[in-house]
Amino acid sequence: MNKTITGAMILICLLAALTGCAKGEPENSLTVFNYGLYIDESVLSQFEDETGIRIKYEEAPTPEELYTKYKSGAIKYDVLCTSEYMLQRLINEGELKEIDFSDMQNVSDIGEEYWEFTRSFDPENKYVMPYFWGTVGLLYDKTKVHGDISSWDVIFNGEYAGDFIMPNSMRDAYATALKYLGYSLNTTDEGELREAQELLLSQKKDVSAYLVDEARDEVIAGNAAMAVVYSGEAYYAYEENHDFAYCLPEEGTNLWIDCWGVTRHCENVENAKKFLDFLCREDIAWANYEEVKYASPVKSVMARMSEEGLASDAINPSPEKLAKCEVFIQLPEETTDLLSSLWKELKAQ
């Protein structure tokens, strides 16, 4: 019996050694890590053809899973794309390399305002490059609401009781309440958070469901009059059927921005820079926009956009409305703990 166990151990060790050996990669390659369905995959082979750099492409569905997979260290990723609060965490942990964006020709086509947004977590603009951005707002069915929807008020005043969907993600849910109350969505003030909690607790009886991915489809299916969604989802619904509209609430909301960064494992920074620059090239940025349908920070994409897209708050919100939006920053641990205990209390009610 003992020998069996020893045999098993030897086998495990052998397997481990074998995977360890697989390091002999060709030098001219780049390991890219991105969210699923977040690029037009044909641009990857185009990049390979143009530069001769071979791309290994890996995907993860959520920021948390992307982070876990990255941290496990099984694969050495060279460049990765994720959301601002996760990038902030990676920067704090020293996982990203400084990049000099100034000598990258196409990167200069990224609008100044987007560098301004990323400065909230990358103050000197030396770690990350904006890729796509958007807001969190209300997707609604015009045939089911009365009057204009312009404020978070409609989900807190009981008018649409049982007919709206809240986000099933902690920070997005509290962001709606905090913004409605006029506070910052990055607040660390316990009183403000508790006030938001009171509001959400009293709202819960009116909420039809807390959903993330299915929220849009529930509105399209006619099961709810409105839902809190990401702007890209709303634009998708609008393209399906023009009865759907998107409201960027006047009190302001969360603005999210997904960016690329180069990891500390990257040995050939020039290749990584080539790839990032390539993503900002006019034809490539447009192809990715067409695939993903989120707002692009690249000016040439905005210039080519249809009037419909430009008129939509989902793709091209007005600067006055944007001024009230905030990017999530990573909260200190005490605040995160408080928030998650409040969230659990809300969900358990």
């Binding site: 948390e64 469901a209 969900k347």
Partner: peptide, 21 residues
């Protein structure tokens, strides 16, 4: 449950996936 009802399994899942505790 539309995310409105919490089983203990949901609490555990959120600790791993959302709060990362």
């Amino acid at each position: 449950g539309g995310g409105k009802q919490q089983l203990i399994g949901n609490v555990i899942e959120e600790e791993f996936m959302v709060t990362m505790n």
